[in-house]
């Protein structure tokens, strides 16, 4: 039981936080700009390497340097939107999807070109001692930080979306873009904020993922599939749903390799990613609008 919490449940919540933060952006972009953003994973990678670059200069706790990564991701996302996505906005959205594939490639090759393709670890690379609670629970400090940070972000996001004018217009555009435009909402401003929030959270998610293991150019791409699954699970255009979806996918992936029956892992850990995919496929068959009544585009 204690092993279950130490080695399965807590890491599951940590990876769930990563998925949750990434899925929020995917869900919001899908809801507001109406296209599946396939470069989101690589945007995460770019943000992560921004933190890594800052960590090479300032010898402090890398968590304090995450804002550098967020800025890099935000600037790149806004630039890419202006140069690559906006000229295609009048066409069917599928062209933007194709474009985002190209952008994913551009981000990844830039990371490889600037920082090389080897694995890189944060800080000294040494193992930090785990947090011991009640003499039985041994959890990694980073995992606790990830879960706490995600909860705080969720709180702020909820406040932003329900109380501020910009947040409300974002929800309005997501629900009905024509009506929002007729009502005189500034759609471009909404689009801008979507990218800012999506990119910032992607950078945070990528940094946590990289600090937990290591940073490499395929980091974000490998996380893309579970994040899409989380976004669909939570319902497209529902940021809080995407958060919940992220945790559900994280739990499902990690707990699927627990030895529920007998002594062997239920599903071999090397097929973790497949779990998220199977969940996504089942959802697409049974309930494509997701658990929280998202929109079906």
């Amino acid at each position: 039981m204690i092993d279950f919490i130490n080695f399965y449940l807590v890491p599951a919540l940590a990876i769930g936080s990563v998925y949750a933060l990434g899925a929020v952006g995917i869900s919001m972009i899908f809801g507001i700009l109406r296209f599946a953003h396939f470069a989101h994973g690589d945007l995460m990678t770019l943000g992560t390497y921004g933190v890594l670059a800052a960590a090479a200069i300032f010898p402090v706790n890398p968590l304090l340097l995450v804002p550098f990564g967020m800025v890099l991701a935000i600037v790149s996302a806004l630039l890419v939107d202006k140069v690559f996505y906006r000229p295609l906005r009048k066409l069917p959205t599928i062209y933007t999807v194709i474009s985002s594939f190209g952008v994913a490639l551009i981000f990844r090759s830039l990371v490889q070109l600037l920082w090389g393709s080897q694995n890189q670890v944060f800080g000294s690379g040494g193992v930090r001692p785990p947090l011991v609670l009640f003499d039985t629970f041994r959890v990694s400090v980073l995992h606790v930080q990830a879960v706490v940070a995600t909860s705080v972000i969720a709180l702020f996001l909820h406040f932003f979306l329900s109380r501020t004018k910009t947040g409300r217009s974002m929800r309005a555009v997501s629900d009905d873009p024509e009506l929002a435009q007729v009502a005189g909402l500034d759609t471009e401003k909404v689009v801008r904020w979507t990218w800012i929030i999506g990119a910032a959270l992607a950078a945070v998610a990528g940094s946590f993922a990289a600090m937990d293991t290591s940073a490499h150019p395929n980091l974000g791409w490998n996380l893309l599939m579970p994040m899409f699954a989380a976004a669909i699970l939570g319902g497209i255009g529902k940021p809080m749903g995407a958060m919940a979806g992220g945790y559900i996918i994280g739990l499902a992936e990690e707990l699927s390799s627990y030895h529920w029956i007998g002594d062997h892992a239920l599903i071999s850990p090397s097929y973790k990613t497949a779990v998220a995919f199977v969940i996504m496929i089942v959802l697409l068959i049974v309930k494509p609008q997701g658990l929280f009544k998202g929109r079906l585009l």
């Binding site: 474009s99 551009i106 830039l110 070109l113 393709s117």
Partner: peptide, 15 residues
């Protein structure tokens, strides 16, 4: 990597 970058850019130009 440069070639990959160029393929990505080429796709954008074509699109």
């Amino acid at each position: 990597y440069i070639r990959m970058l160029l393929v990505g850019l080429l796709l954008q130009v074509v699109l």
